[in-house]
Design a protein around this nucleic acid. Structure first.
Length: 431
RNA sequence: GCCGUUGUAGCUUAGCUGGUAGAGCACUCGGCUGUUAACCGAGCGGUCGUCGGUUCGAAUCCGACCAGCGGCGCCA
């Protein structure tokens, strides 16, 4: 007797054969002396039939009495049946119940908050199972893409003592009588690795203590970052657009069933092909004015503005050459116009907005020190970062991608909380 | 930090200008030999977020508090 998965038995080769399955009760209903159990495992669902034809009265009663999410193992014969949800039915000959549980807390008509409180149970739903499978593809594809292009994966520290950007958004953690912070970006550490490995990437958690209450913010999120020696802003974007194309194509290839279950427009995703349009910030402002948006040079792009802009595109776009005042100190000024910097944001279509930010880093020591002074940063805190500009400095570029934001867009979910199994937000640390 | 909202059964909710609560789901029992979030009948289940006020009478009006949610800023 061989244990099989539900997906394996849903085909003609299994007709008339005896199979053994194990899983959980997804639905159960009785009709007279027949009981239909829809069994769920990680691969799919199938209808089981319990009747007194092949079971004793007592066995049939016990099976009929099962509850949603009870766990069991069944052995029976596979039949074709157009009336069953997935086209096949297994008539139960024998079974073993592992647990008959009490009423499962999740039924129909569910509120968003209730589902978040019960996320540990909601993970079992077909919808969230689809989300988890697609996330798995996204994370694998990101890694595969960079391994396939000669990058090394590195592991930066999570507990750090220097801020990357401002200072107000750090999570403080007690540390043997001192205090450290949880990392909010691994960029600076990644920069240290390029001097030995040249092309590096990492996927690690980042933490932001901002009191954000929006549909696109998490306090803990999965940050995919890369840093590359010897390349500039444009070359970096060429890598990124191919990476996004690769990830989306892998999801389309491997998760068509899950995308359908979630109601995602697959043709839209098939159209996500490099190259993506590059638009200079200054030009974007002019375009925005042409569309009647209230934006002028020097304004930062808020969520509303990004949404209003992105209705005009059906692929992601790069926004480049932001004014210096809008970005942090480490960005490389454009030699042709030092008031603008060699950087880029990648905005996702369908109203999703920024999912990636990157650019060329300042690699000249004097220039970096000057920019840090302008930002009132103490160079002593950054001694190791500045050392990189003292010993064999090279031009380099990098980016940070919010993998949860990417998943949020690919899945086309309402909020980013629906794209991550255990969202951490300002007021939620459980489950 | 700012703006806006909401608390009624385990869950989703109705309850209008005040007359002390109604439904669906879940669960239990019964019916049905082909169900598809089955259906039909019955049952179980509520100090209406908390405290105070107005009133003969408050889920409903007023006040305070508590908790939650949505959006913005910030960013990925």
């Amino acid at each position: 007797m061989r244990m099989q998965s539900i997906a394996q038995i849903l085909n003609e080769n299994q007709l008339g054969k005896e199979v053994t399955l194990h899983g959980w009760v997804y639905r159960i209903r009785t009709s007279g002396k027949l009981t239909f159990i829809i069994l769920r495992d990680s691969t799919g669902i199938v209808q089981l039939l319990s009747s007194t034809k092949s079971l004793s009265e007592e066995q049939h009663r016990e099976l009929s009495n099962l509850t949603v999410e009870s766990s069991l193992e069944v052995t029976g014969i596979v039949k074709e049946d157009k009336r069953a949800v997935t086209g096949y039915e297994v008539e139960i000959k024998s079974y073993r119940i592992y647990q008959r549980n009490d009423s499962f807390p999740i039924s129909r008509d569910l509120g968003e908050e209730f589902l978040l409180d019960n996320r540990h149970l909601w993970l079992r739903s077909r919808e969230f199972t689809a989300v988890l499978k697609i996330r798995s593809t996204i994370f694998k594809a990101f890694n595969d893409f960079y391994y396939g292009n000669g990058y090394y994966q590195v592991q930066p520290p999570i507990m750090v003592s220097t801020a990357t950007e401002g200072g107000s958004t750090l999570f403080k953690v007690p540390f043997f009588g001192e205090e450290v912070s949880l990392t909010q970006s691994s960029q600076f550490y990644l920069e240290t690795f390029i001097f030995s490995l040249e092309k590096v990437f990492t996927v690690s958690p980042s933490f932001r203590a901002e009191k954000s209450r929006t549909r696109r913010h998490l306090t803990e999120y999965w940050h995919a970052e890369a840093e590359v020696a010897w390349i500039g802003n444009e070359e970096m974007m060429q890598v990124e657009e191919k990476m996004i194309e690769y990830i989306v194509s892998k999801v389309v290839e491997e998760n068509e069933e899950e995308l359908k279950l979630l109601g995602r427009d697959i043709d839209f995703l098939r159209n996500i092909k490099a190259p993506f349009q590059r638009i200079r910030y200054a030009d974007l402002m002019k375009m925005a004015q042409g569309w009647g948006l209230n934006l002028k040079y020097g304004d930062d792009l808020g969520a509303d503005e990004e949404r209003d802009i992105m209705v005009h595109f059906d692929k992601p776009i790069f926004v480049t050459h932001f004014p210096r005042s809008l970005k942090t100190f480490y960005h490389m000024p454009d030699p042709d116009n030092p008031e603008e910097i060699l950087c880029h944001d990648l905005l996702a279509p369908e109203g999703y907005g920024e999912i990636l930010g990157g650019g060329e880093r300042i690699w000249d020591l004097k220039q970096l020190e000057q920019r840090m002074a302008e930002s009132n940063l103490d160079t002593r805190d950054y001694y190791w970062y500045l050392d990189l500009r003292r010993y064999g400095s090279v031009p380099h570029s990098g980016f940070g991608l919010g993998l949860d934001r990417l998943a949020w867009w690919i899945l086309k979910q309402e909020t980013i909380r629906d794209a991550i199994p255990y969202p951490r937000t300002i007021r939620r640390t459980r489950p």
